[in-house]
Design a binder for these strands. Structure first.
Length: 693
RNA sequence: GCCACCGUAGCUCAGUGGUAGAGCACACCCUUGGUAAGGGUGAGGUCACGGGUUCAAGUCCCGUCGGUGGCUCCA
């Protein structure tokens, strides 16, 4: 008879098979009331699951001990809410076929097929929620029943839902001997759904829910298959958690770089210029330039050489590199000489012919560069290289163009033209480890300076069973070990991902988390054995023989567009002083202080600081409000008192009060130092120090 | 690329077939005010673009362009 071990190590002995619900009741009425499900041997299950053998049991409730939503509890609530939503929609939209409704990160969704002519829109959410509320209020039990695979399938075939039949067939193919259903209430009398479970005990246990959005999806994610409507919702054990979740979403929306980009005039994407083509307006250009200066300085310290290369190159170059033949669908179409185009048209050349002849190399043209490496490679190849010169490190903020699918484009994070913080290192085999390590040290420095401590590293290794990789396996082993070691030394969390290497070499990807927990893939460091081969690159070794160098591609921050987009969200638009488009705004109290205010502004600008003046006729309250809306780091309020004492009165963004006055000279020096040292010492530190003492 | 939704003043948004609206921003005037918006007046729109239905279209229909959310993709 079952001996049940609880998480605290205590044991309970039962004479007959029992259920988690019974165990909960035996522990106490409070737990019996709050339990939503259980894990048996770590596997999540219903409260009503029969226990007939010794096991480790843990009861699942809505909250963990520290009051945060419990992950398993959320799973149960959301999976159950998905059922209730499906029932509600089935009631309101007769003929809807259900497909699949799992819990996901932020809630749950249910994919469904609407009958021809039927549509659902966000206007329907209210009545769907009302119907859900009704079902929840009835507090009907989630009742599980099972059937053997054969009869179960027959039942589904009788009901005629091809999606559910498919789900069942897949479950059986995966080794399931029986199928299970969950009725919300009485099987046969109430609504039911083929489902593996588990669920909360009854609909009333779904504390709070909301229908969130509509989207479309494909059956099995296959675009040639049926198109389905996906209804997203979210659910929590109680209203407070739901409210917090909605507030977090609101917070995220406020941090959205597309919203802030407009508000703070950081960038503009113009319909008339083209989708996914970013116009950097003056404010955003400052942020980008500051970052580029910072990165550029570090690269010079590490022995990189700056180069500049054009935005296009001959098609043949990209035939050699392999980009043109292999990645055509994500390139802008080639640029062809106008005279030649006319000639071809006169010949009666069709578009199909043209495409073929471009592929075959019969027609020459130019390509907007999808990558910077071929240009950098040709710089390497422009001179004879000795082993003594290596490694050669060529760096460029190089702009590349890629034909991203129109549906993917948005904001700064997915664009069609972007500038990589790119560099290509040409080195000997034995130099790979040092070079990879060097790449990572820049990443560390810059993330640290920006306060982005929450990042992780993925090391992409080759799949040992695949033959798609170029290069000598022994060299691969060394390069992979170099990447692994460098990632380890970096100190950030890292994961090894076999099969994730590029076909030409192992790689390291950087993924950052922003303040509200969203992850963004930034740049990579990739070892490449392929391109040196394709381009026949060489250097003369100590043995006076020709050798092939190895290349390392590295663009640790990916693109300036995406990186700045991530930074906007990271800082919620409130950039630190050294990055801020406008560092100081001088606010004269009235015209009486105009002269002194102008002097302060002039002094700031002489120091190279980005400063402006608000000399309008508004009152100081209004000037402070407007400057605060623009998230200017420092406000220097000057009135007659300040002029007389040659002081300024300081206000810093994020501190909602007057910090008091400071001598002008001290202020100038402190802000200039903060700007130059990229925040190593800050103006507000002085005030904190003063206040602490 | 596919599906759904959306596109009204510089910005944020109201406007369900009958002469285009608000707040903020902008210009001018009054106000010279010590830390999150003093007051007044004014200017500003081919309602994304192109077609259609209608006596009449911002509003209904079709197409194009663009945006948003997903799906699929991402060297």
């Amino acid at each position: 008879m079952p001996r049940i071990t609880l998480p605290d190590g205590s044991e309970r002995q039962y004479d007959a098979p029992t259920t988690p619900a019974q165990v909960a009741a035996d522990i106490g009425p409070g737990l019996a009331k709050s339990a939503l499900g259980a894990t048996i041997g770590g596997v999540l299950c219903d409260l009503g699951t029969e226990i007939d053998a010794d096991c480790e049991l843990s009861l699942v409730t809505a909250k963990t001990r520290d009051g945060a939503p419990d992950e398993n509890g959320l799973y149960l609530v959301r999976h159950s809410a998905a059922h209730v939503m499906a029932e509600a929609i089935t009631n309101l939209f007769p003929g809807v076929q259900l497909v699949y409704g799992p819990p996901v990160d932020q809630g749950f969704y249910y994919d469904m097929a609407f009958p021809d002519g039927a549509t659902i829109s966000s206007d329907d959410f209210e009545r769907i929620e009302a119907e859900m509320k009704r079902i929840v209020k009835e507090d009907r039990p989630f009742t599980r029943y099972e059937m053997p695979a054969g009869p179960g399938l027959d039942k589904l075939r009788d009901e005629g839902s091809k999606y559910k039949i498919d789900n069942a067939e897949r479950a059986i193919a995966a080794g399931s001997g029986e199928l299970s259903w969950y009725a919300t209430g009485e099987p046969g009398a109430n609504w039911e759904d083929l489902c593996r479970g588990p669920h909360v005990p009854s609909t009333g246990r779904i504390g709070a829910f909301k229908v969130m959005s509509l989207a479309s999806s494909y059956w099995h994610g296959d675009e040639n298959s049926d198109r389905l409507t996906r209804v997203y919702g979210t659910a929590f054990a109680d209203k407070k958690q739901l409210k917090q979740h909605l507030e977090r979403l609101e917070e995220a929306r406020k941090r959205d770089h597309r919203v802030l980009g407009k508000q703070l005039r950081l960038f503009h994407i113009d319909e008339q210029v083209g989708q996914g083509l970013v116009l950097w307006t003056p404010n955003g250009a400052v942020v980008r330039q500051q970052l580029q200066d910072f990165i550029g300085e570090e690269l010079r310290k590490q022995g990189y050489d700056q180069v500049f290369t054009p935005h296009i190159g001959k098609l043949d170059l990209y035939r050699t590199s392999g980009h043109f033949p292999y990645y055509q669908e994500s390139q802008y179409t080639p640029v062809i000489d106008r005279a030649q185009l006319h000639e071809l048209a006169t010949e009666g050349c069709t578009c199909g012919d043209l495409a073929n002849r471009l592929d075959e190399g019969e027609i020459e043209g130019y390509l907007l560069k999808p990558m910077n490496c071929p240009h950098h490679i040709r710089i390497y190849a422009s001179e004879q290289r000795s082993y003594r010169e290596l490694p050669i490190r060529l760096a460029e903020f190089g702009t590349v163009y890629r034909w991203e699918q129109s549906g993917e484009i948005g904001g700064l994070t997915r664009v069609r033209g972007f500038t990589q913080d790119d560099a290509h290192l040409f080195c000997r085999e034995d130099q790979i480890a040092d070079e990879v390590r060097g790449c990572l040290s820049i990443v560390k420095l810059i993330f640290n300076t920006l306060g982005m401590s929450d990042y992780r590293v993925r090391v992409g290794l080759r799949d040992p069973d695949s033959t798609k990789y170029v290069g000598d396996p022994a060299n691969w082993d060394k390069a992979e070990e170099a990447c692994r070691q460098a990632a380890k030394e970096l100190g950030a969390p890292f994961s090894e991902e076999p099969g994730e290497a590029a076909f030409y070499g192992p790689k390291i990807d950087f993924v950052v988390k922003d303040v509200i927990g969203r992850e963004w893939q930034l740049g990579t460091v990739q070892v490449d054995y392929n391109l040196p081969e394709r381009f026949g690159l060489e250097y003369i070794g100590a043995d006076n023989a020709r050798h092939r160098p190895v290349m390392i591609h590295r663009a640790p921050f990916g693109s300036m567009e995406r990186f700045v987009g991530v930074l906007i969200e990271h800082f919620a638009g409130a950039f630190p002083c050294w990055l801020a488009p406008e560092q100081v705004r001088v606010l004269p109290i009235s015209d009486k202080s105009a002269e002194y205010a102008a002097e302060v502004l002039g002094r700031l600008r002489d120091l190279g600081l980005r400063a402006t003046i608000d000399d309008g006729s508004e009152r100081i309250q209004a000037k402070v409000k407007v400057a605060t809306d623009m998230k200017v780091p420092y406000l220097a309020v000057v009135g007659p008192r300040d002029a007389e004492n040659r002081e300024v009165s300081i206000r810093a963004f994020g501190i909602e009060r007057n910090l008091g006055s400071m001598e002008l000279e001290e202020f100038l020096e402190t802000v200039a130092t903060e700007s130059q040292t990229r925040g190593e010492t800050r103006l507000i530190d002085r005030f904190e120090a003063v206040e602490a003492s």
